[in-house]
Simulated assay, not measured.
Amino acid sequence: MMIRLGELLERFGGQLTGDPGIEVTAIAPLDRAGASEISFLSNSKLRALAAQSQAAALVLAPADEPEVAATYTGARVVTPNPYAWFARAAQFFVAQRTPAPEPGVHPTAAVHHSARVDASAHIGAHVTIEAGARVEPGAVIDAGCYIGREAVVGEDTHFFANVTFHARCVIGARGIVHSGAVIGGDGFGFAVDGGSYIKIPQTGRVLIGDDVDIGSNTTVDRGALDDTVIEDGVKLDNLIQIGHNCRIGAHTAMAGCVGVAGSAHIGKHCTFGGAAMINGHIEIVDNVHVTAATMVPNSLTEPGRYTGYFPVARNAEWERNAVLVRNLSTMREKVRALEKAVKALDAQRQNE
């Protein structure tokens, strides 16, 4: 498929230097883009590479344009956020090349007679849809998915193969849930009696807003009594655990292997690096950014960037530092004793 560069600018904006009639077929990396492809520069450190690119057109920020233009001979699309422009254009090209799933229910799917599946939805092979469930217009449910009783899948939401979406859970419009994700499994709730564990029934739901992405093998537990809530625009990477009764604020993003313990409430527009661990029953305000592998044991009440780990070091150095950390409490007591002794000496001198 070919499209004129001018048509892309009509869709996605930007200021063009060059011929709007240039026809392009795809987006490619700076070092591999050819004469019919677009590339983009979102990192100023790569200006030199961009300046030598063979791409038909280059998408870049105003700050990078003068230096690149000195040697780059192709068309230039200047926009404040080249990465976002690239993302939208990439969606467009993928949509043009990917055939839309045909509406209808595959003959091998098991759909309960009381379930409501819109005629425009696609239900793939070996899908199970339980009693009272609802699948809205344009939804795509790929092969092997399970949708529990009275669950709701919103308009244009896409479940990739083998997603499990348990009873009474709800997801809004334009969601994406990748293979292996489990939404609405039981939370980790047990009472202890005499050294044994008594299971607490998990009777809440998982409520997911619009435009939410959930990665492969991520799990979101249902609430114990109240609901677990994932607000609009949240982005969850692969292998994330969201515990029961958590609330994740709108447009918060988490990288792979993040763990959020039960009843943690996280604000809007937060980010969490890979393998960050969030304690349960804490509050994190809006616009908090937690770096990778950081442990958050207590509430964070102010926006900002937080880090709680020791960077990698040679093993011998790490062991020395670990010994110092273990001895900090003893050193603190010694310092306090010395402070008291110094104060006593000062008082004695003043009385002489």
Rank of each mutant, 00 (worst) to 15 (best):
V229Y: 06
S36E: 13
Q52N: 10
Y146F: 15
P101A: 11
G104K: 00
P29Y: 08
D64G: 09
V288S: 00
I248V: 12
V117D: 08
E319G: 03
A316V: 01
N238K: 06
L338Q: 11
S216G: 02
A151N: 00
P29G: 14
V68L: 11
Q350G: 09
R168Q: 13
S329Q: 12
H158C: 11
V105F: 10
Q15T: 13
S44K: 14
R247K: 13
N279Y: 03
P29L: 12
N43I: 06
W318L: 02
R47S: 14
G194W: 08
R47E: 14
V229I: 15
C270G: 11
A57M: 08
A125M: 03
N238S: 05
I230V: 09
S329H: 12
A261K: 02
E130N: 12
V290C: 05
A139Q: 02
G138P: 01
D186H: 11
T330R: 13
A35T: 07
D213T: 07
Y309P: 01
Y306G: 05
F86K: 00
R4S: 03
L60E: 03
G184Y: 01
S120N: 11
I282K: 14
V77R: 04
V285Q: 01
R305H: 14
D64N: 10
P107D: 13
G138N: 03
D64I: 10
E23K: 13
Y306T: 10
R4Y: 12
Y309M: 14
G144Q: 09
P297A: 15
V177E: 04
H112P: 00
L60D: 02
V78D: 01
A121L: 09
K340D: 15
Q15A: 13
A51S: 14
N279Q: 15
P311F: 08
R4M: 15
A322W: 14
G189I: 07
A48D: 15
A56I: 01
D221L: 10
V77D: 07
I230N: 01
E10R: 03
S53E: 02
A95L: 11
V312E: 13
I38L: 15
E150W: 02
F310R: 12
L5M: 04
V288T: 09
E136S: 07
N279H: 15
R76V: 08
A337F: 02
I171E: 01
I147G: 02
